[in-house]
Amino acid sequence: MIFTYNLQDERIKIPQKTTFKDHNILERKNIEKWVETYPEILGEELLILTTEFDKFDKTSERLDLLALDQDGNLVVIELKRDNTGRTAELQAIKYAAYCSTLNLDQVIDLHVDYLRRRGEQAEREHVKSKLIDFIQNTEFEEINDRPRIILLAMEYRPEVTASVFWLRKFGIDITCVKITPYINDETALTVESSIIIPIPDAKEYLIQVEKKELSEGSQSLSKQEYLEFYADLVSKLGDRIPDTYPKPLPRNYYTISSGLSNVHYEWIFRGRPRNAFSVELHFENSDKLLNQKQLVRLASLQKTLEERTGENVIITKEWGRKWAKISIEKKTGEMSEELRFWAVNNMIIFFEVFQPEIDRLKKSGL
């Protein structure tokens, strides 16, 4: 319930529920502009990337708004002024499918174009920094291929809500936001915005249940694969360089401390589905300048590392928001004996090439 309380006469007034149509509030001209200006209406902090996007391949369809959330996910926003009709969720799924191929560079370009259409100055490097700074997920590297969906409407037909509940069971992240207008007087509307799916009071619980249900099956197999794979690598590494190594966890990467704060070695699978494997040295201090200084010192060993490994060494000066890394990569996601040998042998080379210099960095206090 929405009500107002008068501080002078201490009376409560209940505003009358109305419709947007009755007050000539339009979907594109008004509601879209509200969300574009105040995306918090949708119940979370979002960065609007563009509006009325129609640059899809082989179709002229146009989505209302495209946004970025703080985990680095694309968010397709579909608006309906009145009720959703029977197929709003299907329409949004189509747009999400169209957007699923967008990478970070393309997202940067479309946001630059959006800002320039609004008459704003938009240099590409500045826009890139703006997007990366907005993302709070410290493991973010690239836009994934599973955009989220937010539906906004005054009324939801049961066909739509039933479909949304069913789709969420299969890992499709759809949020339904309801907006309800109330008339205060002749000059102002009060608009209530509320998330109805997932149910707010149970949101975190429901999301965890959905993730658990989704993980039971194929994902649990992947987790077991990672555990067994990294346990085998650690065993082989321990045979050649005895030490106490961390117990592997069911995830796609494994880290080994270098002894220098926030600098570590890492094995990691990349891609969805996985299609590459890397041996890496990470610089993950909260101080970007310190990461750069340490990288410069160790990047001087690039030629030596390439000679020892026979691989092209990749120097990534800006990774995530502040980090940096040095890596070599093998283009395969198959957990073969060949990959296991490659992973262990090259991790040992990383130790032998980098660790003496890392120890000197420790002594110098850098």
Rank of each mutant, 00 (worst) to 15 (best):
Y114V: 12
Q106M: 10
Y98C: 06
L90M: 00
G85S: 04
H111D: 12
Y95R: 04
N103T: 03
Y98L: 09
V107E: 04
Y114K: 12
Y114D: 14
V107L: 14
A96Y: 05
E89R: 09
L90Y: 00
A96S: 13
G85Y: 01
K94C: 07
A88F: 02
H111Q: 15
H111E: 14
A92G: 09
I108N: 08
L110T: 09
Q91I: 05
A96G: 07
L90T: 00
T87Y: 01
Q91D: 08
T87F: 01
T101P: 00
D113Q: 14
G85V: 02
V112C: 14
D109M: 13
A97F: 10
Q91A: 08
D109N: 15
V107H: 04
Y98T: 03
T87L: 04
I108T: 06
S100E: 02
D105P: 03
D109T: 12
I108M: 04
R86V: 07
I93L: 15
Y95K: 04
A97D: 11
A97E: 11
K94F: 07
A88S: 07
A92M: 04
D109S: 15
C99H: 04
A92R: 02
I108R: 03
S100T: 05
A92W: 02
R86A: 10
A92C: 05
V107R: 06
C99T: 11
A97P: 03
I108A: 03
L102C: 10
R86W: 03
R86L: 09
T87V: 00
L102Q: 09
I108S: 06
L102V: 09
R86P: 01
N103G: 05
R86D: 13
D109P: 06
Q91C: 09
D109L: 13
N83A: 12
N83R: 13
T87D: 08
K94Q: 10
D109Y: 08
C99K: 04
Y114Q: 14
T101H: 06
D105Q: 13
A97G: 13
Y98S: 01
H111T: 12
Q106N: 07
Y114G: 11
C99A: 15
L90K: 00
Y114S: 15
A97Q: 09
L110S: 07
A88R: 01
N103I: 03
L102D: 10
N83K: 12
A97S: 14
L104E: 11
A97W: 07
R86S: 13
G85I: 01
Q91F: 06
I93A: 15
